[in-house]
Design a protein around this nucleic acid. Structure first.
Ligand SMILES: [Mn+2]
Ligand SMILES: [Mn+2]
Ligand SMILES: [Zn+2]
Ligand SMILES: [Zn+2]
Lengths: 150, 150
DNA sequence: TGCCTAAGTTAGAATCATTTTAAATCGATT
DNA sequence: AATCGATTTAAAATGATTCTAACTTAGGCA
């Protein structure tokens, strides 16, 4: 059970990443919550089960996961940095009014992303290793809210 | 001669944006420099010709231009936020080692971006108004630097 | 199994990019 | 030219992230 969590742990062991209770807890949270939490969201959520976890540890751990490539950062959006356990390729729609983030799973996305990466590599000589692709606009809730104001 | 700078000013007048010397100066800098400056870069560059321009004014003005849609923010990249006067559609390659930013002009880019926007709108109900598309990796200089270390 | 040590965690302090403030100044409309 | 809301400014405040230094621990090894 919780196989996705187990898979994630196994992957870290395979990569000789030292396992700590804090890392377990944070990774479990990320794998089981497909919201796109900020550091503060994670801190508050974990405060229930693991009081006294330092913010510094959350920052350190997220940076580690990002460097390992299993987590991505969403740095745009109105409010702070959001994090996402990234197993299936997808991109994001971000609300310019409230910051709400929605996943977009598009079968052709990997193809499209590779196309953009290849073109960039050919044109600039960069050795491309990844991408940040997001679209933004008004989420359905904010559309309603703003429409009823006129 | 309707230089690019004049066109930019005309566009602002058309939109009834109040014109100030500071806004003129900053817009002129952005239009004539195709580097991707940070607030600090702009502040230092303008300090020569316009001492005493407040950092707050630069922040305010850039936010205005971004809201007007004539300037885009590059929020990823290792070091702070970069700005770009965005006339011709293009995307960016960002070096994960030194932060250097390169333009990528790809004829199919508008088509590809629209495809991603349409799919996101259909799937999420968001009213999409724009996108942030970047790829990242090692710039040529950093490739050399890091190769010669092994 | 029980050390040992490099690596990780912690609370609190420090940093520093950005925002806020309140007073002075200015642009543009009449 | 007068008017007034918008803009600018320097300085202070904010707040997210990073740093520090002491403490603790995971995991390899005897
Ligand atoms: Mn996601
Ligand atoms: Mn550019
Ligand atoms: Zn919204
Ligand atoms: Zn580089």
């Amino acid at each position: 059970m919780g196989s996705e969590v187990d898979e994630a742990f196994t992957e870290l062991q395979r990569r000789h990443v030292r396992m700590t209770p804090q890392r377990r807890t944070i990774l479990t949270y990320l794998v089981t919550h497909h919201n796109h939490p900020t550091v503060e969201t994670i801190h508050e959520a974990l405060d229930q089960q693991t009081p006294n976890m330092s913010l510094a540890t959350i920052y350190n751990t997220l940076k580690l996961f990002v460097d390992l490539g299993i987590v991505i950062e969403l740095a745009n959006g109105e409010d702070g940095v959001h994090y996402d356990y990234y197993n299936k390729p997808h991109y994001h729609a971000i609300c310019t009014n409230c910051g709400r983030i929605a996943d977009v799973f598009y079968p052709d996305f990997p193809k499209v992303a590779q196309q953009l990466e290849k073109e960039a590599a050919d044109q600039t000589g960069y050795q491309i290793t990844g991408n940040h692709i997001e679209v933004y606009g008004l989420c359905p809730q904010c559309q309603k809210k703003l429409n009823s104001k006129s």
